[in-house]
Design a protein around this nucleic acid. Structure first.
Length: 763
DNA sequence: TCATAGCCTTTTTTT
DNA sequence: AAGGCTATGA
């Protein structure tokens, strides 16, 4: 245990104080992961069996990394630790105990899309307007209730909730909640929140089960405690009730998931639940320069709700924080790319030492373009996950349905895809028959002649039922990979894709192949005990973008582009926090819905503290948002930074002042910057040839329509700002809109509205 | 049942 | 800018 010598005093205590409740307040960069790793290793070296330790992390990735690090200290015994996210650990337990709750162990996990589509379905049935009851808003409300352990029964019986909903003109939310839960149950499905909610129900109603796990998990650890919700906290509290060996690690200053039900009060109130709680504060930062630590502290000081602690460091003073002012979002991209390259050259850094962090995913575009132009390798994290792609979801839906034929969302997805002549009317008939006879959709479909009588639509339905039954036999007999391959082929999905010879089509086929490979890997992994298709589907349902394509790159030297949320837990030598504009960061949603900005500020704090050596902050004065150009004001957060730590010397912004000719999209433009004081900047850009628009006042625009739509003809080669080169396949002329279907190289077909499309004729 | 023109909405972060 | 939804006609 010589690793103890390398730790500072509070760190050592955090590792070795093993008996009784412990709270570790770990400031940013204070060596939290190290402490957690050693703590678990230490426990094991004291003789605690790995299967008696439960460690809950925030992401699957964090769990995997920690397991590897522990393995380095204690060897492959670490494999037997119970370690993972709340959702993954308790979905496994629920699978074992499913019958006790009236589910079967092959239950489906509904993702957010499934939940939303089910809500849409329910709205239709209840005759409610989905513009008033926006599915995402309704789901949020339901999710919030579940996370606070408010059942639909409690919700309906509580006049306060009804009043709240009525005040928002949505009095029927309670009814939707009820129906939603009933339908999930009928479908033998749980959504993300159910995994936690039902675990609570299980432990409440089945004391014997609770006892079993209480004795099994002698030591419980929770990482990122500030981001747990009430439902999660109560689970762990119950589990730790016997042994009282609960250790939570967190930092209230980094609580950034309130929108998902995380409750910062959990960490603020923890001491009340455990009077003999031991608290350890890790306040020495080993990651960042003095400048960065100072600035971070200063920013977070503006929040009222917090535990007292002072993060400090012995590291060097370090460089000042550089503010980059840009004219437009594209200019911001270029300046950041330029600065990043300079920084790399001057300091002999690698690309992997850099991160560009933004508030929303769509902001990545400008940076991708600029980096690509400079031949800088980058990787965008987040956005659309592999498992959210249509072709993947289609296959998964087939697999889900074969495993759990009650899965209504999967049913709706596959019943007529690939097309087999079962339209909406027929599906409606099935639904009605199912309701009348109190059966599941599958029960009706599998005995179609009995419940649907005669009719034109009956034979395709019978064919469908036969196909699924055959798949079920295959799943029984073969391993997960062979079964999945058989289903992909037998369903007609592979054939459907094989007809598509566009670039996109080929990419889809590759994705399907990759999914099949993933299943094969799953089956071939010797460390895995449960190789069933059910196990695979459960794991896949809980995979997030942060967990994907680990170590699949031949070359891992690239700049990381991601949202601030997904940057939590990571560190980079040089960090660019971009898009620091009012309405964007802090987000407009926060500005309008809540008076205080504390969570947005914590988000800024998290972003700042990712940086080790140097921090850049950038903002643009004009930006495309929701399809149109807006003027932006610099974020109030910039003003909150201690001005003695700021420099703007690197900014190229001053060079934009006055009139300047530059090119955009191949054409020369004049840009005129009149006034660039932060609050009143005005920038105009116009095409140089167009004399008339130069004389006229017009809306500021950094782009212009390069081609008159009237000049476009089918067969022409064109260039689009975003999609690159393409050829016009077809122009539709009817109606008020003109649009063109264009095949873009490497992108596939896009249909664009010509009055908006920024197309340039190439030949 | 299916394809499509035209209209309408979107408008944050993610297990 | 782009995707979803609906009415319409084949």
């Amino acid at each position: 245990m010589d690793y103890l010598d390398a730790l500072n005093e509070p760190q050592r205590e955090a590792v070795t104080y093993t008996e009784g409740p412990l709270m570790i307040i770990a400031g940013a960069g204070s060596g939290k992961t190290r402490v957690l790793t050693y703590r678990i290793a230490y426990l094991m070296q004291l003789g605690v069996e790995p299967f008696n330790i439960l460690a809950l992390t925030f992401t699957n990735k964090a769990a995997r990394e920690m397991r590897q690090r522990i393995e380095k200290v204690v060897g492959n015994e670490a494999r037997n630790l119970w370690m993972g996210t709340f959702h993954s650990v308790f979905s496994k337990i629920l699978r074992i105990e499913a019958e006790k709750l009236g589910y079967t162990s092959n239950f489906t996990i509904y993702d957010t899309d499934d939940s939303k589509s089910l809500i849409k379905q329910i709205l239709k049935e209840l005759n409610l307007d989905d513009k008033v009851y926006k599915p995402s808003v309704v789901l949020n409300r339901i999710s919030g209730a579940k996370n606070r352990l408010i059942s639909w029964q409690a919700y309906i019986n509580n006049p306060i909730f009804y009043a709240e909903d009525a005040a928002e003109m949505k009095p029927e939310v309670g009814k939707i909640y009820k129906t939603y839960c009933e339908r999930c149950f009928q479908a033998n499905a749980m959504d993300f929140d159910d995994l936690l909610f039902n675990t609570n129900v299980l432990f409440r109603n089945h004391i014997d089960v609770l006892n079993k796990y209480q004795h099994k998990f002698r030591y419980v650890l929770i990482d990122e405690f500030q981001d747990t919700n009430l439902s999660q906290y109560l689970i762990t509290k119950k589990l730790a009730a016997v042994n009282q060996n609960i250790c939570v690690v967190g930092d209230d200053a980094q609580s950034i998931y309130a929108f998902r039900g995380a409750d910062i009060q959990n960490i603020l109130n923890f001491a009340k639940d455990y009077p003999d709680l031991r608290t350890v504060k890790l306040e020495q930062n080993y990651r960042s320069t003095k400048t960065i630590v100072h600035v971070a502290n200063k920013v977070i000081e503006n929040n009222k709700d917090q535990l007292r602690k002072l993060v400090w460091t012995n590291n060097e003073q370090g460089a000042l924080i550089v503010i980059i002012k840009a004219a437009t979002d594209n200019d911001e991209g270029q300046q950041v790319a330029y600065s990043l390259f300079e920084e790399k050259m001057q300091n002999h850094y690698h690309y992997r030492d850099f991160a560009i962090l933004y508030r929303t995913n769509y902001q990545s575009r400008a940076f991708e373009e600029a980096l690509r132009k400079k031949n800088i390798k980058y990787k965008v994290y987040g956005g659309l996950s592999f498992y959210q792609r249509k072709e993947i979801k289609d296959i998964l839906a087939y697999l889900r349905f074969v495993i759990n034929p009650k899965d209504e969302e999967a049913f709706r997805r596959i019943i007529n895809f690939p097309k087999r002549g079962i339209g909406e009317t027929t599906v409606q008939k099935v639904v009605v028959a199912a309701h009348e006879n109190n059966l599941s959709l599958w029960e009706v479909v599998s005995q179609a002649s009995k419940y649907l009588g005669k009719g034109r639509s009956i034979s395709p339905i019978e064919d469908f039922a036969l196909m699924i039954k055959e798949f079920q036999v295959v799943v029984e007999k073969k391993d997960a990979y062979e079964a999945a391959f058989h289903i992909a082929k037998g369903s007609g999905l592979l054939e459907e894709l094989s007809e598509d010879e566009t670039v996109e089509g080929r990419a889809r086929r590759e994705n399907v192949q990759e999914l099949l490979n993933a299943i094969k890997e799953f089956v071939d992994n010797p460390e895995r005990e449960d190789k069933s298709l059910i196990a695979f589907l459960q794991e896949v349902a809980l995979i997030t973008t942060a967990d994907e394509n680990e170590g699949k790159d031949d070359d891992d030297d690239y700049v990381s582009l991601m949202t601030i949320h997904s940057a939590k837990g990571l560190e980079f030598k040089v960090v660019y926090i971009v898009g620091l504009e009012e309405d964007l960061f802090p987000s407009q949603m926060m500005l309008s819905s809540r008076a205080d900005l504390e969570e947005e500020r914590r988000l800024f704090y998290v972003a700042i503290t990712r940086a080790e050596k140097k921090l850049f902050i950038s903002y643009a004065l004009q930006r495309y948002r929701f399809g149109n150009l807006r003027m932006c004001e610099p974020s109030r957060f910039i003003d909150e930074i201690d001005s003695q730590y700021i420099t703007t010397e690197n900014s190229r912004f001053s060079t934009l002042q006055g009139e300047k000719t530059f090119t955009s999209f191949g054409k020369p433009l004049v840009r005129e910057v009149k006034d660039f004081s932060p609050n009143k900047a005005s920038i105009k850009t116009y095409p140089i040839q167009n004399q008339r628009s130069m004389q006229k006042e017009h809306t500021p625009s950094s782009h212009f329509t390069a081609s008159n739509p009237a000049q476009l003809r089918e067969g022409m080669k064109v260039e689009h700002q975003k999609f690159g080169f393409g050829r016009i396949l077809k122009i539709d002329n009817q109606g008020t809109d003109k649009r063109a279907t264009i095949l873009f190289e490497g992108v596939g077909e896009k249909t664009l509205l010509l009055s908006f499309a920024k197309l340039m004729i190439v030949e």
